[in-house]
Design a protein around this nucleic acid. Structure first.
Length: 284
DNA sequence: GAACAGGCAACTC
DNA sequence: GAGTTGCCTGTT
């Protein structure tokens, strides 16, 4: 991979193991939206850490709007550019099924999302489908997030926990998030008041971080594992939802020793999840 | 209209 | 402690 700084864009030439469509649509994030237009490229617009960007993929490589400063300050880390996913896929090829799943999912990268955003969106995700999760999260940002001007458009940052903490269930009613509204407010208040220190949890051992997240009302094992994997950078966290349950019982009879995938069980999970969902869609 | 959806918590036994 | 049920809302 070679990084080239153009005037208004950063190019990742020969981007290895980096597929935008897979990365943005494998269920880990909800704020990157496809931009229709030039059919020769795959383009997405999104906001992360209060900064907006267009990211597009052509036959040449990946192009991220913004120059060197934005890239070094944010996107290099956000897109996990330094990690060698090819080597990880080889490490994960410990059985035929995992090997197939990893090959199929090649190009997925685990985004280093804002901890609070990941926690909040996965609270919203419970018992919900992706279009609705996306809608609720978009509404939340639109109503309460800081506006971010981008190419004659106005996008919205994910609202800070302090902002959400100051709201009431009534304020959240337009989101139509149902019983999850109470959980969102509770989590926001815990973070805003410092009872839950997400930055500290990034450095804490994985199990400890997950247990801390689970002290929140409305956060169980699955949501905590998601928040840890996608928000805290715990690449060995292993969220098991109904899709994963189905795949694991079909392939491993329900019992799989996660030590086989360590320390990248989270990446293995993403490959299995994506593979299971894709094959379900193409066969139905 | 009933069942369900990428869960959680409270309640049962 | 394992199993059951209600919860908001939108879709099928």
């Amino acid at each position: 991979m070679e990084i080239i700084f153009h005037e208004t864009e950063t190019e990742i030439r020969h981007a290895a193991d980096f597929d935008l469509e897979k990365t943005f649509n494998c269920g880990q994030c909800f704020r990157w939206h496809r931009q229709e237009g030039d059919p020769s490229e795959d383009a997405f617009i999104g906001v992360a850490y209060g900064r907006a960007a267009r990211v597009r993929q052509t036959g040449e490589g990946i192009f991220i709007s913004g120059g060197r400063e934005d890239f070094e300050f944010l996107w290099r880390d956000y897109f996990d550019i330094e990690r060698d996913y090819d080597a990880i896929r080889k490490m994960l090829a410990v059985d035929p099924y995992m090997t197939r799943a990893a090959e199929y999912g090649a190009g997925i990268r685990i985004l280093r999302q804002e901890p609070w955003e990941a926690l909040c969106t996965f609270i919203v995700s419970q018992c919900n489908n992706i279009p609705r999760i996306t809608q609720i999260v978009e509404n939340l940002c639109h109503l309460f997030g800081e506006p971010v001007a981008f190419e004659r458009e106005t996008l919205y940052a994910f609202p800070a926990p302090e902002i959400v903490a100051s709201l009431s269930e009534e304020d959240l009613a337009p989101l139509r998030s149902g019983y999850r509204a109470r959980y969102i407010l509770g989590a926001a208040r815990a973070v805003a008041e410092g009872r839950l220190d997400l930055e500290a949890l990034k450095k804490a051992p994985e199990r400890k971080a997950i247990e801390a997240l689970k002290t929140l009302d409305g956060v169980g094992e699955k949501v905590a594992q998601c928040a840890a994997l996608f928000g805290l950078g715990k690449l060995n966290a292993f969220p098991v939802d109904t899709w994963m349950k189905k795949a694991l019982s079909a392939e491993y009879g329900g019992g799989v020793d996660l030590a086989r995938f360590a320390p990248y069980a989270g990446i293995a999970q993403q490959y299995i999840f994506h593979y299971a969902r894709s094959s379900a869609r193409s066969s139905s």
